[in-house]
């Protein structure tokens, strides 16, 4: 029910993001979505990509501080109010969202997020029949 996400710890310094992107490019990895917040000293660059496991190994071997984690990704119709409905499913259950980002893919909207309670999130997604992206679906997204 979850997908792999790469999280890369990068120093807030010119050129550090470039290095990560160059490594992924050389390895032929394709980005699907990515996000980075602006903080004073460092950032966590989060990436959904093709072949996350291979991307992880490739970055790690290059000495990049990287981790591979599981995040939820649900697909929504590209209509106003869909994201609000999806989030309400979680918030009404008292589940907190740690972070979230979204992107459009074709005619679908995709919400990527992590919560403070993975087990209950899974239950919620199943009980409310939310449509989710699984790891094996990633390659078909591209």
């Amino acid at each position: 029910m979850t997908i792999h996400q790469l999280s890369i710890f990068i120093e807030n310094k010119a050129g550090t993001l470039q290095k990560v992107l160059d490594l992924l490019s050389e390895a032929g990895i394709q980005l699907i979505a990515s996000t980075i917040a602006d903080t004073v000293e460092y950032g966590i660059y989060r990436i959904i990509c093709s072949e996350p496991t291979r991307a992880y190994t490739c970055l790690k071997e290059a000495g990049i501080s990287v981790s591979l984690s599981d995040v939820f990704a649900i697909t929504l119709d590209n209509q106003p109010g869909r994201a609000a409905e999806a989030v309400r499913v979680l918030s009404s259950e008292g589940i907190g969202i740690t972070y979230m980002y979204s992107f459009l893919l074709g005619d679908k909207g995709i919400l990527v997020f992590r919560t403070d309670n993975a087990e209950r999130t899974r239950e919620c997604i199943i009980l409310n029949r939310l449509s989710f992206v699984a790891e094996k679906d990633l390659s078909t997204l591209i």
């Binding site: 999280s7 710890f9 917040a37 966590i44 501080s65 740690t98 992590r114």
Partner: peptide, 10 residues
Amino acid sequence: QLFTDDYARL
């Protein structure tokens, strides 16, 4: 190593 991908924990 990056033990978390969570700002709060860092």
